[in-house]
């Protein structure tokens, strides 16, 4: 018996890692398909309001974003806490929206221009006065399809 046992002493087999790259590649492809490139860093504080009746925004390439909110906490010592509008990568005034929409339009083909949506990403603490001003500006430049970005919730009360 001892004779046999000697033969069976074995090392733990090495883990086959040849398929590891393939697994990681699969993960990469999954992420490439499900995510989209981050366009710009958000400079304002954003806690979206909750809503139950939200719809998913289709076709992200047709969406342009307007961020509104107070500056992020780490910048508040420099910029204060007053509500600001962010277009692309910088803060802007209400009348700069017109220019922004025009440049966003130029980026899209003529067929897509009608389907363009402006997503208003607004912090829940923002007062409606500014929101109304932004909406009026959007109406003036004919960007009529808007979306009030909200967090999907099961119930809000």
């Amino acid at each position: 018996m001892a004779k046999f046992r000697k033969d069976t002493i074995s090392e733990t087999p090495e883990l086959a890692t040849t398929s590891l790259p393939d697994i990681i590649f699969m993960l990469i492809f999954f992420f490439m398909v499900t995510t989209s490139m981050r366009k710009s860093t958000v400079l304002v504080l954003q806690r979206m309001p909750d809503a139950t009746e939200v719809k998913k925004l289709e076709n992200k390439s047709l969406v342009s974003y307007i961020n509104i909110g107070a500056p992020r906490p780490e910048q508040q010592s420099l910029l204060g806490t007053a509500t600001r509008i962010q277009l692309n990568d910088k803060f802007a005034a209400v009348d700069e929206i017109q220019e922004f929409i025009a440049s966003e339009r130029e980026k899209r083909s003529e067929n897509d221009q009608k389907l363009m949506t402006t997503a208003l990403k607004i912090d829940e603490e923002v007062r409606m006065g500014l929101v109304t001003d932004v909406k009026q500006t959007l109406r003036r430049c004919g960007a009529l399809r808007i979306s009030y970005t909200a967090r999907k919730a099961d119930k809000i009360f």
Binding site: S36, R38, K55, K56, L57, T117, K135, R145, S147, T149
Partner: peptide, 15 residues
């Protein structure tokens, strides 16, 4: 890349 899908209340503004 960003993961989160955007949800929102879609509205049409009057001209």
């Amino acid at each position: 890349t960003t993961m989160g899908t955007d949800y929102g209340l879609i509205r049409q503004l009057p001209p």
